[in-house]
Structures are given as structure tokens and as C-alpha cells.
Amino acid sequence: MDEVELKRIVWRSRRGLLELDLQLERFVADVLPQLNDAELVDYRELLQSPDNDLLDYLNGRSECPTPRLWPIIARIRAAQR
């Protein structure tokens, strides 16, 4: 993935909910640079989720309806520890 698209992904990681911003900020700083192209595509798709749904997925209050995105959600959760 090219640098321009990576910058777009980082920008889209900024959300309207502070709690969500804090979780994604840590993930973007620590894990995003290590992701391969397929994982970046999954992360970009996950970012299309509404803020409240995404927060619920990350906090385990609801399950993402797309099983293919579960591994990236797990990586975001692991970055919080």
C-alpha cells in the first residue's frame, strides 16, 4: 500500500468518540506500521463502521458481523494491554 493511502488510513482512524480515538491512536502508533497489505485492507474496511458500532466491537459489547475482520479487531484489543 502506498504512503498516501497509509496517511488516509491514519486520518480515518481519528474518530468522533474520545474513547475510540484513544484505542485507535495506540493501535495506529504501535501496530499499524507492522500490518501487511491484506491486514491494512481489513483495517480500512473496519474503519467504515459507525463510531458506536466500532466501539462496541472493540469493547466486546457486540460482535462484528464480518468474521474476516475479527483478527484485526483482536489486534486492536491486544494493543490496549
Rank of each mutant, 00 (worst) to 15 (best):
V31C: 09
A29F: 09
R61E: 08
V31P: 00
A29D: 10
T66W: 14
R77Q: 15
E25C: 03
P33N: 01
P65V: 15
N59E: 12
L17P: 05
Y57F: 15
E3N: 01
Q23R: 10
R68F: 11
V28Q: 04
L24N: 07
Q34R: 09
N36Q: 11
I72A: 05
A79R: 12
L40A: 06
Q80A: 08
S13D: 03
R8F: 08
L18K: 12
E5G: 02
D21G: 02
L18P: 04
R77T: 06
R81L: 15
P65R: 15
L18R: 11
L22K: 12
E25M: 05
A29E: 12
V28M: 09
R8Y: 05
A78T: 05
Y57Q: 09
M1L: 10
D37E: 15
P65I: 13
L6N: 10
L18C: 08
E39A: 14
E25H: 08
E3W: 01
R14K: 15
P33S: 02
D51V: 10
L35K: 03
L54W: 02
L32F: 13
R75G: 06
M1W: 12
F27I: 02
Q23W: 05
D21T: 00
L20G: 00
D21F: 00
D30V: 08
L55H: 06
E25V: 04
D30Y: 02
D30A: 11
E25A: 12
D30E: 14
L17D: 01
C64F: 14
A79Q: 07
P67E: 14
R8W: 07
E3G: 01
R8E: 06
I73M: 13
N36K: 14
D2M: 09
R61W: 04
L69G: 08
E45R: 04
A74Y: 04
E5L: 15
V10H: 03
N59Y: 11
R12G: 13
E63N: 09
R14G: 09
V28A: 01
V31Q: 10
R8A: 12
N52A: 07
A29N: 05
L22F: 10
K7P: 00
D53W: 02
Q48V: 01
T66H: 15
A79V: 08
P67M: 13
D53Y: 04
E39R: 11
L24V: 05
N59Q: 11
I73N: 12
R14A: 11
E5N: 11
A38T: 14
L69D: 03
